[in-house]
Design a protein around this nucleic acid. Structure first.
Lengths: 355, 355
DNA sequence: CTGAAAGCGCTTACAG
DNA sequence: CTGAAAGCGCTTACAG
């Protein structure tokens, strides 16, 4: 038998404390002027009744939801889990709940942008690895809900992101410095719908790769470029192709650690020893990278989520302070660059002799 | 300049449609009797104004939150991510949002159980891999908020979980059938706080291991049992110890794939070839298991989350139907067992000759 | 079928 | 300092 006890309200507390509901509310909200005896009576009653104010009533009354949204593609992939972990680390001690929305298509992205960025839904939202279009951004502004971008950028929105061109450059540069000249690159599909709405990190890393080669006077060989969906087994077959070609690369830059895992498999399949016969560098530095002893680029995944959440909380704080007085948004919203760094492990070395 | 447009309300719609707010509400809620012309006028106005009812007002008025909580330890670990993915798959097309709470200590578990399981907070909660105590369960019942357990059990609560004893048995049995007799086991710390409040899967798997050995007439050698925190590098050193002992095991049962990864590393460190010199079986079948070609036990992680969410939605549905009339809770709440199965891959084989 | 009114449980100007 | 009252934006018995 479910004997659901009727929830107690602020009026019950008021009665017990011998004051009005308004006074109870005031002490609950740490309000300034409440005389000592009243305050004490209220605190006693609250404790005695184990009272907790009804959250939905507060939400309606205050016009705040105490909830934040995170909009993120493929939330279950290790790199996104790591970013979410960063979010969680700052939100968990805050009064805000986080609800995560998983986008797997352009359609769901649009739906989320439309339906979620409303003041009665969320106090703020963080968008990860997705680039809102101008129309979205205008709607965000109209809604008054602060939005911050993690691993993406827009001129009108605060954001925290890496310099992906630099990342691609550093990775490629590392291989060049080791003595490689035939360096292949394996990317996510450039024209997949989610690549297009995504952070464009792929394209930028490719650009960095080209830049490094050009700078070193190494001609860009289109046959050393492959693209395929974000999946190990596909990267594996792309790498296999590459390695079976007449003039195979001595090094492969994989645009994510997941891709790199596929490359490692392909090498194993073909009996190639890494790094002796083939150097491999990944990107992201997800947890398994260390286990696999994979050389990679660390892009501060956790930190990016952490900073994103911090920026959002700061904006919320500022809004609360500047209540009503329509703070003119700065022309150039806060944009931060996150640190990236090369992590040299065991899958890269000088190329085989005579290559 | 933030030009926040004032949100439109049901009254605006009513005015535009030339009806009362009550009527608007009725059509919005798909209510039975609203005459055609009124309905159409309202639908027009709703569309024209792009009206979306204020969620917080609905919450307060209806006494429902349209939000569910997930309470889970170490949410970022691959096995929990997989369970959460199962939850997400059923919740995402539902009208419910999910907020995930990460527990890393007994204290946070208690706090979440106390603060979250309240009708003004959540319409339902799913608890993963955590065993609430009787006092908690009584409080849950008083709150009237339905709670379902995933990967844990309690006589008074609906749940979905594996038979961990059987899992441990099957894993061990596999090694025995291959011909092994010196079979070690590496567990999570049995006395760590979170093991104690956890699902006790560890202890049960250990029990299954003992059962299989006993049944096969193999004496249980305490020196073949090791326990340590859930971390690869620790499992690695435990395994190293084991393998360096005078009479080392020919096979190791690791109680999670993560532990198994540590074992694999230890074998590599010592120049042992797996499975030729050492067989290794893990548990969970997380994504990397396939990549590592690890033999393991698949415990339907995704499915468990999926079923947990489905059970909760069904309870919510039932509650809505039986409104008010205090449905007598069944004496024995719904308990389902999830499928587990042995996945034989490349890390197990017959023991070396002469062992 | 439909509207006016009360109610959900808070918060906060407004008086005093 | 403190209380009575209005208001947040819905929903839903209650009349008609």
């Amino acid at each position: 038998m479910k004997a659901v006890s009727q929830a107690i309200t602020i009026r019950d507390v008021a009665r017990k404390a011998g004051v009005s509901a308004a006074t109870v509310s005031r002490v609950l909200n740490g309000n300034t002027g409440v005389r000592e005896p009243a305050r004490i009576a209220v605190e006693r009653a609250v404790k005695a009744l184990n009272f907790e104010p009804n959250l939905n009533a507060r939400r309606l009354s205050l016009g705040r939801t105490f909830t934040l949204a995170g909009i993120v593609p493929f939330f279950y992939r290790p790199s996104y889990v790591e970013r979410l972990r960063g979010l969680e680390s700052v939100l968990s001690p805050s009064p805000f709940d986080l609800v995560v929305y998983n986008v797997e298509s352009v359609h769901s992205r649009d739906r989320f942008f439309d339906e979620l960025v409303r003041p009665d839904r969320f106090d703020g939202v963080v968008v990860i690895s997705l680039r809102p279009e101008d129309a979205h951004v205008r709607a965000f502004a109209r809604s008054g809900v602060p939005v911050v971008l993690v691993d993406a950028a827009h001129p009108k929105l605060p954001s925290i992101h890496e310099d992906s061109v630099l990342g691609g450059y550093i990775a490629t540069r590392h291989l060049i410095e080791l003595g490689h000249r035939r360096i292949a690159i394996i990317c996510d599909e450039l024209n997949a719908p989610l690549s297009i709405i995504g952070s464009h990190a792929n394209q930028s890393r490719l650009e960095g790769y080209r830049k490094a080669l050009t700078e070193a006077g190494i001609p860009i060989d289109p046959s050393l470029f492959r693209e395929g969906p974000h999946a190990k087994h596909l990267a594996r077959s792309l790498a296999r192709d590459l390695l079976l070609a007449p003039d195979p690369p001595t090094a492969i830059f994989a645009v994510s650690d997941t891709h790199a895992m596929g490359v490692l498999e392909a090498a194993r399949d073909l009996g190639l020893s890494v790094p002796r016969d083939l150097s491999v560098i990944g990107y992201d530095d997800i947890e398994v990278a260390e286990y696999l002893n994979l050389t990679t680029i660390n892009q501060s995944l956790f930190e990016s989520g952490k900073r994103g959440a911090e920026m959002l909380l700061a904006m919320l704080e500022a809004d609360k302070a500047g209540e009503g007085q329509t703070a003119p948004a700065p022309d150039a919203p806060l944009t931060e660059e996150i640190e990236i760094r090369l992590v040299v492990r065991g899958t890269t070395s000088a190329p085989p002799h005579g290559r």
